[in-house]
Computed example of a mutant assay.
Amino acid sequence: MARRGQLDASKLRPGWTTGACATAAATAAYEALLTGEFPDPVEVELPQGRRPSFALTLEQVTDGVAMAAVTKDAGDDPDVTHGALVRAWVRPGPPGSGVRFVGGPGVGTVTLPGLPLPVGEPAINPAPRAMITANLSAVARRHGVPLDLEVTIGVDDGEALARHTWNPRIGIVGGISILGTTGVVVPYSCSAWIDSIRRGVDVARAAGLQHLAACTGSTSERVVSELYGLPELALLDMGDFAGAVLKYLSRHPVERLTICGGFAKLTKLAAGHLDLHSHRTQVDLSHLASLAVQVGAGEALAAAIRAANTAAEALDLAEADGIPLGDAVATAARDHALTVLRGSPVAVDVICIDRGGAIVGNSA
């Protein structure tokens, strides 16, 4: 049973990725291009043997081009693209051309190296391309025709939606990305965010950057940028996903990583947690008291910290007694980060800040 204030994942409804929606739209459009009739709903085959059906929101055939659109349902996941209209236009291509993908309105274009697509390509990721191609191939086989098509994918208002994603930071301009490896959105798995972290590392490495900063929010980004003069490309919007950053860097290292975030969140990393979300992990005041003792706190202060209401109150108590609890937390967080990196040659430092952005702890 979930604790009060937490989410019971077993009761949450899964949804569909933009890649699955694009697959459904393209499949319906191709069928209509060949027959003049749109299958509605349209059934598609996704990885892991799933065969969902999608209702069409729009359909049209004009001048040898078929267009179908599907409205994305992200289930109970707080996805920025929930409700987005994903369109596919399908038209014949030159003989022997196979399937060629084009970015329509609202789909971004890759402008920086390091992503799984070449510069200049539309941001339709490899897995969705494979899903779309596999389903179009099935339609072509069923009708006994060669698979030579131009497939354009667009997303209504995609450029505006992209402002709420990582795309502008990692060099995808003009719209969102078409994503999804399985086609399914698992509620609160935040797979798109974690994938964006990985792509952020890839783009930064491709640009030759060797000092990256993983930040829990905009205030920590500002602090670490001012402290080290790092370019925006070096700033990873880690959010609560410390584990995603560290595990990816263990396989794709850079010379240095700075982790910067709010004191309360980083007490969780110091205690061994890799998910820093308030619904999924809690501040361990007993652990904070133990860290305080390690840097000189007496039993009276330790007891007061254990009885504190919040991490901020614990920090205030320690600071009033001249005990560098912030530094102790930063050091413990760094040490745990190094264990997750598993010997990967990444130097790590950790900076803790308060709500106003003042530095209250540093592992250096």
Rank of each mutant, 00 (worst) to 15 (best):
A264F: 02
D240T: 05
A271H: 10
R256I: 03
H252F: 15
V245Y: 08
G239M: 05
H273P: 02
T258K: 00
C260W: 09
F263C: 07
L266R: 01
V254T: 11
L246Y: 05
L236F: 09
L269W: 09
L257V: 11
A270C: 04
F241Q: 13
M238S: 12
L230T: 00
R256C: 02
M238A: 11
K265S: 05
I259T: 03
K268T: 06
K247N: 13
Y248F: 13
Y248V: 11
C260M: 09
M238C: 04
K268L: 00
A271V: 08
Y248T: 14
P253K: 13
A242V: 05
L230Y: 00
G262H: 14
F241T: 04
F241D: 05
P253I: 08
A271R: 01
T267Y: 12
P253D: 14
G261Q: 03
K268V: 02
K268W: 10
E255P: 06
L276S: 13
K265N: 06
F263A: 07
L246Q: 11
P231T: 06
R256Q: 01
L236R: 07
H273S: 10
M238E: 12
F263M: 02
G272K: 13
Y248D: 15
L257H: 09
Y248M: 08
L246W: 03
A270V: 03
K265H: 02
L233E: 12
R256L: 06
C260D: 06
T258D: 00
G261M: 01
I259P: 01
E232D: 15
A270Q: 02
L236C: 03
L246G: 08
G262L: 15
A270N: 03
G243R: 02
T258F: 01
H273G: 05
V245Q: 08
L266Q: 01
K268D: 01
L235I: 12
L276T: 14
A244W: 04
A271L: 07
G261S: 08
L233Y: 07
A264T: 09
T258P: 02
G243A: 05
M238H: 12
